[in-house]
Design a protein around this nucleic acid. Structure first.
Lengths: 333, 333
DNA sequence: CAAAAATACGAAATCGTTTTCGTAATATAA
DNA sequence: TTATATTACGAAAACGATTTCGTATTTTTG
């Protein structure tokens, strides 16, 4: 491994000067600096992150907290965007776990142990005391799809998105609109339910309580159950909004079994706007969350806290998505 | 930040002794060690990865090279397994990219810069000189779905899996079996094509060249194209094997448009065995790759090279998958 | 031309660990 | 009891960088 010291010896200067030359410090003769850099290049010098981090207390490492939805296309897309943006801005991404081998280590301790400059909390059990500890720590944090006091949050405006969906569906003539929502304890679920009500209210649509049933995100089984429930209502809905695109597969299954065709017999809308939705026939109408931008904002807002004058603070960043029409909603009335 | 020095002062011992106590070295009085550890615990001491790594040349960090298929369910599952296994064994996972900010840095240099103890290459452009450089470096490497000389590879036995699929399909009475394969330049594609031929050969099935058409992995569009091509053959196949489960969606679309029903009019088989396959109706018959085990083996084999007596070497590790029947193949004849 | 300012560099401390080697104190063996 | 072995600890060097501060030299200014 080639070190600054070796370069210094070859160039006949001190280690300090080499360091400065490599970092583009002003107090080194341009000619000398160039000579040093050339030698460094020729020798294949590369800095040592550990040494640098030890001295500067900056690791250029961003921790990412990811519980288990890694195989969810939407989250995967966000993660990918986080990775790309971080890379663009000179940071690396590391997963933060709650232990190191047999040794138990809280999320916060783990992040600190690795000298992470900040952490993005995406997809975690937000009530977990360890997650709360992390959020409340002095580390710069960005949370996705949740709000922690004192932290920056980045997410789709869930109220607005549901309002949009309701408007879209109502615009197609539907009045009997059902909503299968995700886990009730989640922040975004609350907001989406709120948005659903709001949309209905704005349009003067009276929605019976039975039209709002609980399901689970990314879970076709749960959606299948909920769908059956809705279909067996004395006055079933003409349109069902699913927790997300993927879980709609459960509903689809039920329709097929009962000989119902989408959208002729029943209209449906998803959420997320993953590629899957556009490969289904009929194309699934959905609300496309801008995963790319959400990941981007997460990183930008995190680095802002790390490098900028504005330290850790509370802020909500909403990234707008868009209705992606599709053919799964029938025009009626 | 609590350091060994502070603990040493409080306990009235030297830094060396504290270090030894924390690491369970034998040359420290058990009573003293316990006393030190208690103080450390009370103070919330946590080691500093950078300092440790700088001194020991071991980072307990595994680099993962991931080009862009992160939103592919199969890869996501492998990644998840890698993450879990690494965590179990005391390692962290970091993505390795080919630059740091504006500064271009090869995959190898990046891995070395971060002191990665080893790198798992999953899903990369294997012909990329930088990937080749990384594979050829002194760093312990494990490659997935590809073979590099001098490196450990972990993958499904692609020949055997295709043979199994052909046997399965033939066992259902099919003789006219088509295969849409992925990108031809890939190692696994070659192997799968080989397996397909082998299976047909073993069963004395004469497959016309037109039954083997090229498509792309994870790409429904390409599969749609290939499917059309197959269906318009004078003597079309009774069963089509797709590059993977996801890309089958493209085929499905074509069938629906033409009014063909699976499996009554046409039988199909996928590859991967992702959850999606089991949520489709009819359930898609597929070859389930054991993503969990592949990830596990990748990490185990990597750490074996890092810690074990057996240094970097060449080895092929095959993880067997299983046929997952489904209802998409009709019993005929 | 003298004084002040700017330039270019180096010595040395430091970051938080680990590890080697030396040594006093104690325990064991002869 | 003396010689030897063991135990328990510490001093100090090292890992590879960054950074502060001091200083000799050169340049600018009045």
């Amino acid at each position: 491994m080639v070190t600054l010291k070796q370069i210094a010896e070859i160039c006949g200067v001190s280690v300090s000067t080499v360091s400065k030359a490599m970092n583009g410090q002003p107090d080194v003769n341009p000619a000398t600096a160039e000579r040093i850099r050339k030698v460094a290049r020729d020798l294949g010098y590369r800095p040592n992150a550990a040494a640098r981090s030890l001295k500067t207390k900056r690791s250029y490492l961003i921790g990412v907290l990811f519980a288990d939805q890694i195989n969810h296309e939407y989250f995967a897309n966000v993660l990918d965007s986080i990775r790309n943006t971080a890379m663009d801005l000179g940071y690396d991404i590391m997963f933060v776990s709650d232990r190191v081998g047999n040794y138990k280590m809280s999320f916060y301790n783990h992040s600190a142990y690795r000298n992470c400059d900040g952490v993005i909390i995406m997809e975690a059990r937000f009530e977990d005391p360890e997650v709360v500890e992390l959020a409340a720590s002095e580390l710069p944090i960005v949370v996705l799809d949740h709000v922690f006091s004192g932290c920056v949050s980045v997410m789709t405006d869930n109220v607005a998105s549901m309002v949009e969906i309701v408007h879209y569906v109502a615009g197609m003539g539907h009045r009997k609109i059902a909503f299968i929502h995700g886990q009730e304890n989640g922040y975004i679920t609350q907001k989406r339910i709120e948005g659903f009500y709001k949309g209905c209210m704005e349009l003067g649509i009276r929605t019976p309580a039975e039209y709002i049933v609980k399901g689970k995100y990314h879970d076709p089984e749960a959606s299948a159950e909920a769908t059956k429930q809705l279909l067996s209502l004395p006055d079933p809905p003409t349109c069902i909004i699913y927790p997300d695109d993927y879980s709609y597969l459960g509903g689809l299954r039920v329709f097929e079994k009962r000989g119902l065709t989408v959208p002729d017999d029943i209209s449906v809308v998803g959420f997320d706007g993953i590629d899957l939705a556009s490969h289904l026939r009929p194309r699934l109408a959905t609300y496309r969350q801008d995963a790319q931008k959400i990941g981007e904002q997460a990183v930008i807002k995190l680095i802002e806290q790390i490098e900028g004058p504005m330290k850790k603070h509370e802020e909500q960043v909403y990234v707008s998505g868009t209705i992606q029409p599709g053919k799964s909603v029938k025009k009626i009335g």
